[in-house]
Write a protein that binds this DNA or RNA. Structure first.
Lengths: 158, 158
DNA sequence: GCTTGACCTCAAGTCGGCTTGAACTCGTAG
DNA sequence: CTACGAGTTCAAGCCGACTTGAGGTCAAGC
C-alpha cells in the first residue's frame, strides 16, 4: 500500500497534524519522504501511533515511550524495568481504586463533613499509603502526619 | 492546641512552604494570622492538606479540589457529579489495568515485536477502548482506526 | 500560467502546578 | 542594639505536551 500523506494519517488517527510533526521532531515517528513539502508516512505509522496513544494512556512520558519504541526497545528494556513500570501502574491503580471508593461513598454518606465519617477517613488513609498517613482523629482535632516525600529536587527556598 | 507556623506545617506534611503559600493564594487553605510576617495555621490545615493530596493523587485539578473543599462542597456536589467522577476514575483504572497487563506480558513474551503477539495486540485494543481501536491485523499489515478524539482538556492521570 | 489552499518552518504561546530569585522585614539570640 | 536567619512579596521561570501565528512554498485544478 502507498504511503499516506499527513492529512490522511491525521484523519485516520484523530491525531492533529501539528502533533504528528511534533512527534516526528521528537523522533517518535518518521516520515518516509515528501510530496512537495508534504510529509508522507508508511501505513505502519498508524500502529505506531496506536502504541504511542497506549503509552500516553498509561501515563508514560513521550521520552519513555520513545525509548520503548526504539528497534527492539521493549525487548531491550529488561524485564526488571518493565516489571517496575507495571508495579508503578499497580500502585497507581490501588490509589485510584481507593479514591474511587471514597467518592462513591461520599456520594451517599450522610456525615456532615467527610472527615467525620470513618469510612471516608479510612479511604484517605489508604489512598495516601506510602505518601502520607492521617493519624487517628479525636472528635475533631486532626493530626495528619505525612511521610516526608522529598522528591522534587529542591529543599528550601529563599 | 496552638496554631502552627508555616515551617511546622511544612515539616509535618512534607509540603514545601512555597506550595503552602501557593495553596493559600489559590484559596485552598487559609492562614489564621501572622506572627510578624510569618503565617500561622490552624492544625486543621493538616487534614485539609491530606485531602488535597488525596485529590491530587486522584488526578483532580486544584480548582476541582477547591470546589469540593468549600464548606459542604462535597455535600453540594450532587451525587451525579460525584458518581461521574468515580466513573471517570473507573475508566482510567480499566485502562491502566490493561496496560499493566500488557507490560507484564511484554516483560516475558518472546515475540520479536510486540505487535506480532496476539496478547499484546489485544491489550492495545482494550486499552484504547473509547479512544481508538486497532482493527484486525493480517500478518503484519497494521491498520489502526482511531475514533476521533477531539477535545483537549482531558484529565491526565499524573 | 495562475490561483488556491493545504502544508511547511520556526518561534512563541498555553496550561497547570509549582519553584526560584531578588529585595525586603521581623522576632530572637547574643 | 545589632546581626542573623527564616520568613515575606512579586514577578518571572520551568516542565511537558502540544497549539498557534506569521510568513513561505508548492502540487493540483481551472
Amino acid at each position: 500500500m502507498k504511503d499516506l500523506d499527513i492529512a490522511e494519517v491525521s484523519r485516520r488517527t484523530g491525531v492533529p497534524s501539528s502533533t504528528l510533526r511534533y512527534y516526528e521532531e521528537k523522533g517518535l515517528i518518521a516520515s518516509t519522504g515528501r510530496r512537495g513539502l508534504r510529509r508522507l508516512f508508511d501505513p505502519a505509522v498508524l500502529e505506531r501511533l496506536a502504541l504511542i496513544a497506549l503509552g500516553r494512556a498509561g501515563g508514560f512520558a513521550l521520552d519513555e515511550i520513545s525509548a520503548m519504541l526504539m528497534p527492539d526497545g521493549l525487548a531491550k528494556m529488561d524485564r526488571g524495568r518493565l516489571d517496575a513500570k507495571a508495579d508503578e501502574l499497580d500502585r497507581t491503580i490501588q490509589r485510584l481504586t481507593t479514591i474511587r471508593e471514597a467518592l462513591r461513598h461520599a456520594a451517599r454518606c450522610p456525615a456532615a463533613r467527610p472527615m467525620e465519617c470513618p469510612t471516608f477517613r479510612r479511604a484517605v488513609r489508604l489512598a495516601g499509603a506510602g505518601r502520607f498517613e492521617v493519624a487517628p482523629i479525636g472528635s475533631f482535632k486532626a493530626e495528619a502526619v505525612f511521610v516526608t516525600r522529598r522528591k522534587r529536587k529542591t529543599g528550601d527556598i529563599g
